[in-house]
Amino acid sequence: MKLLAKLIAGIVVGIIVGGLYYLVGPEGTTGAIMEFIVRLFVTLESILGAFIFFTIPFIILFFIASGISQIGTGSGKVVGATLGVAYVSTLGAGLMAYAVASFIMPRITEGSSVPEEGSALSPFIEFELPAIIDILPALVLAFVVGIVMNMLKLELMIKFFDQGKDITEFVIEKVIIRILPFYIAGVFAGMAATGTVFDTLKVFGVVLLVAIIMHWVWLLVQYTVAGSLIKKNPFAMLKNMLPAYFTALGTMSSAATIPVTLERTKTNGIRNKIADFVIPLCATIHLSGSTITIVSCSIAVMTILPGYDMPGLWEMLVVILLLGVVMIAAPGVPGGAIMAASGVLMTNLGFNEAAVAFMIALYVAQDSFGTATNVTGDGAVAAVIDAYEQKLNKNQVDSE
Rank of each mutant, 00 (worst) to 15 (best):
Q222F: 09
Y388D: 00
Q396K: 14
T224P: 02
R39M: 12
T247N: 15
M96H: 04
F351G: 07
A99M: 01
A93I: 02
G269V: 13
T29K: 15
L392Y: 14
L362R: 06
G111Y: 13
T373M: 12
A244N: 11
E27R: 11
M252Y: 11
I258A: 01
I56E: 05
N272E: 15
T251P: 07
H286N: 13
I8Y: 07
I212K: 00
T257Y: 04
T303V: 05
D166R: 14
T90E: 01
L321C: 12
G118I: 10
G80Y: 06
V319K: 02
G18T: 04
T224I: 05
A248G: 13
I285G: 11
I37D: 07
K239S: 10
A193G: 08
T196S: 11
N233W: 08
D162T: 13
A211D: 09
P115H: 13
G289R: 00
L323V: 04
T261S: 12
L219S: 10
I47F: 14
I158D: 12
F58A: 14
E169K: 15
E263T: 13
I147N: 05
V301C: 05
V225K: 04
G25P: 10
L180S: 01
L4E: 10
I15H: 13
I56H: 06
L48P: 05
G67S: 01
I258Q: 08
V260E: 10
T261K: 10
N150Q: 15
V318A: 15
T247D: 13
I60V: 15
L180F: 08
V17P: 11
V225G: 02
P280L: 14
G190L: 09
A340S: 15
I16A: 14
L152V: 15
I328V: 09
I177G: 04
A189R: 10
P331A: 06
L208P: 03
Y308L: 07
L323E: 04
T373K: 11
A236Q: 14
V145H: 03
V221C: 14
A248N: 10
E400K: 15
L242D: 06
P306S: 11
L349D: 00
I230P: 12
M1T: 12
Y98F: 13
G205Y: 06
F51P: 07
L23K: 06
F124R: 02
G67P: 03
R178Y: 07
